[in-house]
Every structure is written in C-alpha cells, then in structure tokens.
C-alpha cells in the first residue's frame, strides 16, 4: 500500500544541511498496524507527515497504492489522500466552533455527500463510539479522552483505508490511553491500516510491527 524509496528531508541551517529524514526505505502492506518509536527529534512525526503528504520530502520516491505521489498534480493528490487517509492528532485538533456532530460531519461535506448520506454516516459513528448524548456539545465541554474519541470518529467518517495517528494518547491519562488503543486494535481487525507514532512501549505493543527511529533513520 505504501512504498517509500530513498526519502530525504532536510533544513538548511547556516549553509549546511541538517537532515531530519535520511534515506528512508519502507514498505507497509494493507491491514498492517505499525508503531513508530524513537526519541524526540528523531523524525517520527516528520515521517508520518510525509506519509500523509502534509509535508513533502526533498528527495526520494513515494508510491501510495501504486501511484507515484510526488509526481502527481496537487489537486489529484489531495483527492487521493482525502478519500483514503484519516488523521488523529495528539492534541485532538477538533474545530472549536463546531459541535461534536459538525466536527464529525466536516470531512463528509468536503466529499460532497448529500445531507441525508452524511446524517446516516455520522449517526452510525456516534452510535459506534457511544457519544450520541454528546453530539451537540462543543469540544471545550468534553474531557481529553472524549475529545480524542471524537477525533477518531471524525478520522473514520470518510471510511479511510489508512489511519495516521501522531501520539494519539500523548495528552491522555493511562486509562483513557488504553481505551483508545483498544479501539485502534479493533479498527485494525476490521481492516483499517494504522500507522501510529508513540513514545510509549506499552502502546507500541498494540501494533503488529514496530519501527525504531534515530536521527532521521530507521534502525
């Protein structure tokens, strides 16, 4: 599903290149659950951003579902990713001005679904994650764990094949974290490919495989 070849990313600092990603080669199959680990500044998040095309590498090739992503027109690329990827963030990144319901609905609006289709999908998700009673609340009225559940529900709204999660439990206490990880495991069993970045050994264990990174390279 994902194939990275010789991916480099660097910043120019005072005339010399400072590498964040150095010659990354990676292949991830559909149905995988990969945990990326490593110390701060090792390039985990950047790698995740490159995979999700939130950030472009400076060098290398990237194939997503056999398509050459880096040589694709921006519009087509963003359509490809929009329909196949969902993101989950450490600090949830819900839109403060939107209710729980509207937050989950937003990606569907961009997919140009009709309002009745949207309604049935959002209702399903609210049911599935047990947050029907909270649908009219604003993010500020929820606990961190609840917010992350909404974040995940939103990421899944577009029924993506790939879920990218950047320290999804980083801001949660251990119990909430465990619940989220259980949820991920369940999703993976349902067929969603998951790549997560994490600091926690325990959470990494939920994955089928673990990638260790150091100084921009996979060890």
């Amino acid at each position: 599903m994902i194939k990275l070849e010789h991916i480099f990313k660097w910043y120019n600092v005072g005339g010399t290149k400072s590498f964040i990603l150095k010659d990354i080669n990676l292949e991830i199959k559909e149905g995988d659950f990969v945990s990326i680990m490593g110390p701060s500044g090792s390039g985990k998040s950047t790698l995740l951003n490159v995979i999700g095309m939130l950030d472009e590498p400076d060098e290398g090739n990237y194939f997503f579902m056999d398509e050459d992503v880096l040589n694709m027109k921006a519009k087509k690329r963003s359509q490809l990713f929009q329909s196949h990827i969902g993101y989950v963030f450490q600090s949830y990144h819900l839109i403060d001005e939107l209710t729980v319901y509207e937050n989950i609905e937003t990606p569907l609006i961009y997919k140009n679904l009709s309002s009745s289709e949207r309604k049935s999908i959002v209702s399903d998700l609210l049911d599935r994650f047990n947050i029907v009673g909270k649908k009219d609340l604003f993010p500020a009225q929820l606990s961190g764990g609840q917010q992350q559940v909404v974040g995940i529900a939103r990421a899944l709204a577009g029924s993506p094949k790939l879920l990218l999660a950047d320290e999804p439990t980083g801001n949660l206490n251990s119990k909430q974290g465990e619940e989220i990880m259980e949820l991920f495991k369940q999703l993976n069993e349902d067929g969603v490919t998951i790549i997560q970045v994490t600091h926690s050994e325990k959470n990494a264990e939920y994955g089928k495989s673990i990638l260790n990174m150091l100084d921009g390279q996979i060890k």
């Binding site: 519009k75 963003s78 929009q82 990144h93 839109i95 961009y110 939103r154 577009g158």
Partner: peptide, 9 residues
C-alpha cells in the same frame, strides 16, 4: 490546517 487534513480544497 485541520480542515485541510480533512480534505478541504
């Protein structure tokens, strides 16, 4: 930014 990750053009 968030909206863009959710697919906004």
């Amino acid at each position: 930014g968030i909206r863009k990750t959710l697919g906004e053009q």
